[in-house]
């Protein structure tokens, strides 16, 4: 290996055979290079008369942003792509934890460069903190083989690996549509939508497009007044109703009974989660005896209503 100063323009940005991080946060790197220059030269190699980046994409992209003309690079004479890639990978994981998108790209490349699947599971997964099973190999390969657009959406929406795992169970065409729909939501809600839609599709024997074109869903998705996060939230509720009709009906009945009793707004009444037990939970807050007695009196009055018993499951 030797260090050379080369024009940035001679480095190939099209050859991504060694690249594992596609959505880097360049701001901190750009600030750093601007302040103190490029301290660690990127690692490159020669392939078909091109200088191919092995390690240091983020540094090179920062230099491009800063319009730096020449940079120092370490040239490797290594001819084996596998050996070079492993060098880059091991260096990477020595300094940072790879996110699951990075792990996915790494796994795909290791296999492309000649490592066997069993070997990757046995020797690489433990280094990456990944369970040593085929299930995870399949998951990472599926993620790596997604379109770049889907990966970007997944990255930008901050999908958890569990949500990404669910997304991989859809057809490629549906992945992009769903990733965009759920992206404004938090991780648990993203997962919930994907899970519900998968279950509904399986239960009803319908494809995703069909479910999303059903009247109520289509109205939500095509609405010109709702924001994208409102659309996602409405869709989540709609799918929840569709997936759990008996639970939804029971919740609606409970709410309507509470309403018919003119339940005070400052007193919360909740059933057990999923009505698993019959107990109801009432909570309220008060600042003084007067407030306390006022609420208790109000509740006592409600308890004398003929419909009060309708709250309680027989």
């Amino acid at each position: 290996m030797n260090i050379k100063i080369i024009p940035l323009s001679t480095i190939s940005l099209d050859d991504i055979r060694f690249r594992i991080s596609f959505f880097p946060d360049l701001k901190s790197m750009t600030d750093s290079v601007k302040r103190i220059g490029l301290i660690h030269p990127p690692l490159v190699c020669r392939r078909e008369d091109k200088s191919v980046i092995v390690c240091g994409w983020k540094r090179i992209e920062a230099c491009l942003i800063l319009k730096i003309k020449e940079i120092p690079v370490v040239y490797s004479e290594e001819k084996s792509d596998l050996k070079l890639f492993q060098t880059a990978l091991f260096e990477n994981i020595a300094f940072r934890n790879l996110d699951y998108l990075g792990i996915a790209e790494a796994v795909l490349r290791l296999i492309r460069f000649g490592r066997t699947e069993d070997d990757v599971i046995k020797t690489i997964f433990p280094m990456l903190g990944v369970p040593t099973t085929y299930e995870y190999l399949d998951l990472y390969l599926n993620i790596a083989r997604c379109s770049h657009d889907v990966k970007r959406e997944v990255f930008q929406a901050g999908f958890s690996i569990d949500a990404a795992r669910l997304l991989m169970r859809f057809e490629e065409d549906d992945r992009m549509v769903l990733a965009r729909i759920v992206s404004p939501l938090g991780r648990n809600k993203q997962k919930q939508i994907l899970e519900d839609i998968l279950d509904i599709a399986h239960r009803d024997g319908k494809d995703v497009q069909h479910i999303l074109k059903e009247k109520e869903a289509a109205e939500v998705l095509q609405s010109s007044t709702l924001s994208s996060s409102q659309k996602a939230e409405h869709l989540r509720k709609y799918l929840g109703k569709k997936r759990y009709p008996a639970l939804t009906e029971k919740e609606a009945k409970f709410r309507s009974r509470v309403k018919s009793l003119k339940w005070p707004a400052d007193v919360t009444i909740q059933p057990e989660p999923y009505f698993e037990e019959k107990d109801l939970h009432v909570s309220f807050s008060f600042k003084n005896r007067k407030e306390f007695l006022h609420i208790v009196k109000n509740l006592e009055k409600i308890s004398q209503d003929d419909n009060f018993d309708s709250l309680i499951d027989k």
């Binding site: 279950d199 399986h202 997936r243 008996a246 989660p273 999923y274 698993e276």
Partner: peptide
């Protein structure tokens, strides 16, 4: 398998079970 298509919800132990009335 269609074993999981019914309304299975988390119970008090976190395990999925059929919704109580079912």
């Amino acid at each position: 398998s269609r074993m999981l298509i019914e309304e299975l919800v988390p119970g008090k132990d976190g395990k999925y079970r059929y919704f109580m009335p079912l």
